[in-house]
Each structure stands twice: as C-alpha cells, then as structure tokens.
Simulated assay, not measured.
Amino acid sequence: MHANVRRLSILLALAAGMSGSTALAADPDHGAELAKRWCATCHAVTSEQKQASADVPAFASIARRPDFSPEKLAFFLLDPHPKMPSFPLSRTEAGDIAAYIGALR
C-alpha cells in the first residue's frame, strides 16, 4: 500500500509541475539534453540519430502513441522497471524528458 501512496504522490507532484505554471513548467530543451546523455544508447532520441537498439522504440514513436501523455511518461520514468537501467532522475528531470518527447508529436 505504501508504494501506491508514494506513486500517487509522485504523480500528483508531476501533474502540479506540468500544470502550465511558468515557475514549474517542464523544460523540453533540458529534457533533450538529458535524453541525449542518458537515453540515446538505447533509444533514437532525435531524428538525426543514426544508431539505437533495434528492440526499443524511438522517442518519436513513443510520442505518437494514442495513449501518450507527458504526465504518464514522467511517472513511468520514475517508477523502477526491469527493462530499463535505473537512472537517478529527479521529478523535474523526468518531467523535462517527458516534455521533450511530447514535443516530438
């Protein structure tokens, strides 16, 4: 139960941070920098990237999914899962990466 409460708290904090407030707005440019540094080993994070792992989706493909939302993606990035390496992302960094991916729509 505690894990669910923690996840809900993270999701609510992310939603508040992405609500359009200038002070708390996600920064897609910073997200692009982070993605190039941490994600490009496996994912194609830009259209110019020539190499990525074949078994993972490109960021543009993730952005075009019908169920895509920056809030859900940021939450996903903060929740440990076995297929991806564990990166010590802050809520702000996860929100920035999600905003960058959303900008690829």
Rank of each mutant, 00 (worst) to 15 (best):
T46V: 11
A63L: 07
L89M: 14
F87R: 06
A74S: 09
Q51R: 12
E71A: 14
D67L: 13
S61H: 07
L78I: 09
F59A: 03
K50N: 09
L77W: 00
V45K: 00
F87N: 05
S53E: 08
K72Q: 15
P57T: 01
R64N: 13
P82L: 10
L73I: 00
P80W: 11
P57R: 06
L89S: 11
H81G: 13
P85V: 06
S69Y: 03
S61P: 03
I62S: 01
P57C: 05
P66V: 14
K83C: 05
P82A: 14
L77A: 06
S61W: 04
L77H: 01
P80R: 12
K72G: 14
S86V: 14
P88L: 13
M84P: 09
I62K: 04
I62Y: 02
F75E: 04
S47Q: 03
D67I: 08
A58S: 11
V56K: 01
A60E: 08
L73N: 00
V56L: 07
S47N: 06
A60C: 07
K72T: 09
D79V: 10
P57H: 01
D67F: 06
S86K: 14
P88D: 13
K50C: 04
A58P: 01
P57S: 09
A52F: 00
L73E: 04
F76V: 06
A63W: 01
F68I: 06
F87K: 02
Q49V: 10
S86D: 15
P85Q: 07
S61Q: 11
V45F: 05
S86E: 14
L89H: 09
F59D: 00
P66Q: 14
D55Q: 09
F75C: 05
A74C: 10
S53F: 11
F76G: 04
S61Y: 02
F87E: 05
Q49I: 10
F59I: 02
H81M: 09
E48Q: 06
R65S: 13
R64T: 06
S86W: 12
K83P: 03
V45H: 03
